[in-house]
Amino acid sequence: MAYTIDRYPSEDSPRLGAMTLHPTPESVPRARRWFRKFITPYDPACSVEDCVLMISELVTNAIRYGQADDPWVVRVEWFREKTSLRVEVHNPGFPANVRLRKPDANDAHGRGLLLVDSIAESWHSGPSRFGGTLVSFVVADAWPE
C-alpha cells in the first residue's frame, strides 16, 4: 500500500482530513492532489494554491530529512480552528533540526520554510505526537466567522 487517506473525520473533531504517505518523491504531488480534492467541499476562503505550495514544501522536507531505522511514513493532517486552517506534517526526524535557512542565491535548496514563513499566518515546529518531528502552519481567515 502506498498511502491512506481519512475522508470521513468525526463530526466532533476539528480535523478535516489526514493522509499517510510513503517517504518517496511521488508522495509530494500526491499530497498536493489529495489536499485540493479533500479541502474543496469545505469551501475555504483562503488560497488553496498557497496551502498546496506550503504542503508541498513541508512534505518534501519531511521526506528529505525524516529518519528512522524501521520503515516509516509521513503524516499530513488538516484542521479547522474557528476561522483558521492548520496543517500539520509529521515525520520521524529529529525536531531540533527544523530551522529557517538563509540560502545564497546559488543554493539549490533551503527555501521551503522561507516560503511557508512568508505565506502562512504562523508556523511551528517541535516534537510530533507520533514521535519525531511536527512542522505545521496556520492560515488565518480560511473561513468566514
Rank of each mutant, 00 (worst) to 15 (best):
Q67P: 02
I55C: 14
D104Y: 14
P41M: 15
P23W: 12
S56C: 01
W34V: 08
V87L: 08
Y3D: 00
E77S: 14
P127S: 02
I55V: 15
E121N: 15
D43E: 09
K82E: 14
H22Q: 13
E26V: 09
R99G: 00
D104F: 14
P23T: 12
V138Q: 07
V52A: 14
V98G: 03
F35G: 14
M19L: 12
W34I: 09
T4V: 01
P71S: 11
H22L: 00
G132Q: 02
V116A: 01
R75T: 05
F79L: 00
S84W: 03
V76L: 04
L53E: 14
T4D: 00
C46T: 00
F35W: 13
V98D: 05
A142F: 12
A108Q: 15
S136N: 08
E81F: 08
M1C: 11
S27F: 03
P95Y: 11
I5R: 06
L100H: 15
T40E: 15
P44T: 04
L16Q: 08
W72L: 12
L58W: 06
V59H: 07
S13K: 10
G131H: 14
E88F: 07
A68W: 02
W34D: 06
W78D: 00
P14S: 13
R111A: 09
S56A: 06
A18K: 05
H124N: 13
F38K: 02
D50G: 14
A120C: 13
G132V: 08
T20V: 10
Y65E: 11
S56L: 00
Y3E: 02
W72T: 11
R80N: 10
D69Q: 13
S125Q: 01
S47P: 11
F79N: 05
T20G: 08
P92T: 11
S27R: 03
C51E: 06
S136V: 03
R80Q: 14
E26T: 09
S84Y: 04
T24R: 15
Q67F: 07
R32H: 12
F38D: 03
D50P: 11
V76H: 01
F38I: 03
G126F: 02
W78L: 04
L16Y: 02
N106A: 13
D117F: 08
S27M: 02
P71D: 13
L113I: 01
E49L: 05
P9S: 15
E49C: 08
A140Y: 11
S27W: 03
